Amino acid sequence: MHAAHETPDRPPLDQEALGDAAFLSARGIPQLTVVESTGSTNADLLRGVTVDPRAWPDLSVLTAEFQSAARGRLDRHWEAPARSSVSVSIVLRPVNAEGRPLPTQSYSWLSLLAALALREALLETAGIPAELKWPNDVLVRGKKIAGILAQLGPMGDGAVPPVVLGTGLNVTLTEAELPVPTATSVLLEHPTTLDRTALLKSYLSRFATLYRSFCNADGDPAAGMAGGPSLHKRVEHVLTTLGKQVRAQLPGDHEIIGHATRLDEYGSLLVVDSAGHEHVVTAGDVVHLRPWTPPGEAGGESGYA
């Protein structure tokens, strides 16, 4: 295993393994495109579904070895070294087995579903125990290893507005290359493998299974899925946010401080304040969500953990 301060080997993705027809067809992936470099895979697919919707059917995948203009939530920008990450976007056109569109209010679960799939892939492929931070991050020991960004495409002439779901996983970033000190990478978490191809295939496999199950349940997060508990239960079980005191900063300098208790049926976070009032915080509204300790109490450096 490489020492964290050395620059590790960064081989390219194995395009033959990723393009294997048996692998793709078993997961219902119609096409998987690997590009050497692009601005942003999400931006490329948003443009693609707008210009030529038929060219990008449900579960089409685009992955890039390097992204120069990647964006996270709130338009945050970062740039990782080439071949150091898994940068992948998927086109989703959610319909059930009969072709009936899912209600758009179920779309808020898609980024949580992706985070769950990535958590399972990290555990089973690299031996890394991960948790979810609401609304769209994957953490290892409290540090961010991956972020997920879902963006709604245009309605077009179809009845199903497409979603472009982007995932960025830090794989071989060294400590010096991390975007912020609160980030981490697969390399830094004592993994059993650093194989980006294996990680990507594992993520896509798990995502496709969970997604198909969710679609066939008409986007009902309370339905049992893929031979186990419901999406709602699975997410709550690994959501590190729940049970914590949090400070939710909302647009317009409004904030809520309280106890994060549960997710509602739309995947929104319920926060109970000191007066016992329950607030619904949606992923689209929250600017920051941080653990919070009252000043003067143990661990309460200026209120932010």
Rank of each mutant, 00 (worst) to 15 (best):
L46Q: 15
L139I: 08
E36P: 09
G99Q: 02
K143R: 15
R93K: 13
G258A: 02
S68K: 06
A305D: 11
A121E: 13
D58L: 04
A126D: 13
R247F: 08
L123M: 12
R206W: 12
Q31R: 14
A305G: 12
S108A: 15
D273H: 01
K201M: 11
P162T: 00
I256R: 13
M225H: 15
N96I: 02
G227H: 03
P294W: 02
R206M: 08
P154M: 00
H254N: 08
H259W: 14
R83W: 01
Q151V: 02
E297D: 11
T209G: 05
T182Y: 11
T193V: 01
R206T: 02
L45H: 12
A176R: 15
V280Y: 10
G48I: 03
R83M: 02
A130N: 10
S230G: 06
P251L: 03
W78K: 08
T182V: 10
L59C: 05
L18A: 02
S205E: 14
V171T: 00
K244M: 10
H232F: 06
E16Q: 15
D218Y: 04
T33E: 02
I128G: 05
P162F: 03
L102F: 00
R76A: 00
E265N: 11
S202H: 07
E175F: 01
G284V: 09
G142R: 04
A26H: 07
S89A: 15
R196M: 03
H279V: 12
V281S: 10
Q15D: 14
V49S: 08
L231S: 07
G99K: 06
E265W: 14
A183I: 01
I90Y: 08
V164C: 06
H237W: 03
D44C: 10
L250T: 10
T241W: 08
V186H: 00
A69S: 13
A226M: 05
A275K: 05
A305H: 14
L74G: 04
S202M: 05
G158W: 11
G127K: 08
E265G: 10
D253W: 04
L231K: 09
T63N: 04
G267Y: 03
S60I: 05
W109C: 01
